[in-house]
Design a protein around this nucleic acid. Sequence first.
DNA 1: CCTTTTGAACTGACTGGTCAGTGCAAAACC
DNA 2: GGTTTTGCACTGACCAGTCAGTTCAAAAGG
Lengths: 210, 210
Amino acid sequence: MESSNAPGGAGGGRREATRQKLYEAAVTLIAEQGFSATTVDEIAERAGVAKGTVYYNFASKSVLFEELLRHGVGLLTASLREAAERTAEESGSKVDALDAMIRAGLVFIDRYPSFTQLYVAELWRTNRAWQSTLMVVRQEAVAVVEDVLRAGVEADELSDEIDVGLTASALVGMVLVAALDWKAFQPERSLDDVHAALSRLLQGRVSGHR
Amino acid sequence: MESSNAPGGAGGGRREATRQKLYEAAVTLIAEQGFSATTVDEIAERAGVAKGTVYYNFASKSVLFEELLRHGVGLLTASLREAAERTAEESGSKVDALDAMIRAGLVFIDRYPSFTQLYVAELWRTNRAWQSTLMVVRQEAVAVVEDVLRAGVEADELSDEIDVGLTASALVGMVLVAALDWKAFQPERSLDDVHAALSRLLQGRVSGHR
DNA sequence: CCTTTTGAACTGACTGGTCAGTGCAAAACC
DNA sequence: GGTTTTGCACTGACCAGTCAGTTCAAAAGG
């Protein structure tokens, strides 16, 4: 017996493929309608599986959502960290690293706009079942930015008067909102274009005549 | 909304008072749970009125929500515009005006955190009944920031290379996310403190050694 | 008296979750 | 090799509960 299942990690198991389909179906539906307005029947239908399959793969609707959150933010965090490290090797400049992370953030949002939207919509809610999951996962992502900021201060490349936590939040917000507006209202613009505008803002070349 | 009254347009009619109570009840519940997860019974109960009263005052749950959105963003827009105009009279500097608007934004979020949260959660959704309302109302608010940016470019106080629309989005995002994180994770910090950190970011005193 | 509110009962549609049963490919057996 | 068994993955009808919205007679309120 011992037939199918995924040994080490992401194999091509039938199970894993089904879960992936369910993630993809759930992410767009929940982004559009919100968690509560999205029914399990809809998710199953869009994924092309039966409702029972959803409950075979996930303990409940909430659990499906929580695992989806973890999955998505995991991708983002890895991408940010990779961008920061790659830049660190090449240039050593922390401002360059921040800039690279901004780009990585934009690339992520460009690829997974629905996930981003859903994440933003749920992040500041209180009293929800998955709130603790959300907090943990948020901290993981923000911490990557904070680390770079802190390193920048230590390298005397950034002012030591900055508030690391708040500045990290503000930078994340800047990218998040600009990117969501981009995808929502001007999807034809290029990523480079958007990146350039945000770079300018980051490097303080907005106020102060050039 | 959240706390006090400030009806904005009406005297102390009994009807208006009831609507106000319903707004206040709805805004916190929907911010916490989302629109779909919030029941009309809950809203009525928290407002201290009978369910029939909700339907006497609003055609439906959605209409209540839409009018709530209009009401809230109206307050924000007025506040932003007022801050910009007041600063314009006093100093004439557009950067000062932006700074004043940042503060006005923070004050608003400080006073109505639930409304802000609910607004963010709904803003980028698609295919929802109130989407057009939301777009209109968003544009009203962003336009205030854009106007100041444009004036700043014309006065040669800001670089003419900036992208007005995107920069406005980014600034709004910066304030929004920083403020929501502030209220959610460090509510004990003072508004001045947060404002100072954001001012620094606005004026590009982060990168570049002082 | 005319407007507003009450409060409880009712409906009809919808939803999360369940469960007995099916299909099928690898494993065990002869 | 051919047959039988095993159990994973999946199915979809079904159930018990929930909710938006309606109705209405009666009570405040002003």
